[in-house]
Design a protein around this nucleic acid. Sequence first.
DNA 1: GGCATCCTCAGGCGGTTTGTCTTAGTTCAA
DNA 2: TTGAACTAAGACAAACCGCCTGAGGATGCC
Lengths: 135, 135
Amino acid sequence: MTLTPRNITDTELALLRLLWKDGRSTIRQLTDQMYPEGGHSEYATVQSLLDRLEGKSCVRRERDGRVNVFTATVTRSELVARRLRETADALCDGSLAPLLSQLVRVSDPTPEEADALQGLVDRLETAGSSGKEEA
Amino acid sequence: MTLTPRNITDTELALLRLLWKDGRSTIRQLTDQMYPEGGHSEYATVQSLLDRLEGKSCVRRERDGRVNVFTATVTRSELVARRLRETADALCDGSLAPLLSQLVRVSDPTPEEADALQGLVDRLETAGSSGKEEA
DNA sequence: GGCATCCTCAGGCGGTTTGTCTTAGTTCAA
DNA sequence: TTGAACTAAGACAAACCGCCTGAGGATGCC
C-alpha cells in the first residue's frame, strides 16, 4: 500500500520544482522545460513521473477540457519537514535537537545566517508560549 | 564508481547503530542482536550488509585472529550532517537556512529546546568569526 | 471526408538497489 | 577426524527508476 509517501526522486523533484515555480501546468509545459527538443518519448517520461508523483500524493491531476493539468499538493516546506523528521527518526531516535545542533555546527554560517537564526529564535520564543499540546 | 557514499538503508543503519553502541563487534555479536534465534542465513545477511557498508565507507574491517571485527568509521553526527546537506541541496538550493526555519517551525519546541537553540546561536556567533572562506 | 497533430493511457524494458539465502572452503578444538 | 564455527563468492526475487513503445481518442485544417 502507499500509506507511506515514499521517497521522492531527484527527477521527480525537478518536476515538483517546476510546479512550485509555475503553478498549474500541463505535461506539455513541463516537458518543454525538462526536455527541450523532446519528442513523444520524453513526453511519456514526464507522464510516468507525474503518475508516480500522484501515487506518492505529491501532485493532483485535473481535467481541463481534454488535457490534464497538474498541481503540486505538497509544498517545499512540507517536504523539508518530512525529510527532517525522517532523519531524526532514523538517526536520532526521533529527537530533532541533534539535527539542530549539527545543522548549526556544520553550516559554517555566514553572519547573515547567524542573524536569520537569531530571528528564528526570537520568533520561536514568542510562538513557544502560545499553542502546544503534547508529543 | 563509489565516489559518492550512497544512501544508507534502514537495515544498514540498524547495524551502524549497534556499532555505535558497542564499538568493535564481530558478525556473530551483531547477528545475535539483530536476529536472535538467527541461523546461518541470517549470519550471511549481516555479512552482506557489512560488506555493503564497507563499500560505502561506513565501517572498517579488521582481522583479529581468524575472525573479522568491524568498526564504524562514520559517526552519527557525520551522517546527520550528510543528510541535512543532501536535503538542503535537493530542496533549498543548498541553503541550510530554510531547513533551520522549518526545523523550528515543525518541532513544536519546548521551552528547553528554545533555550538550546539560543545556546546554539550564542556559540554560532562566536564560531562564526573564526574560519570562513566563501560560499 | 481525409489527414495530421496533439493528447492520454497501459504497459513493458533494462539497470540498479536491497534484503535474503545457498554453497563451498577454511580454521580450530575436542 | 569429526564437527562447529567463521569466511567468501555469488545468486535470487522483489522493488524502484527512468525511459520508451504502441494504441487509441479527440481536434482542427485542407
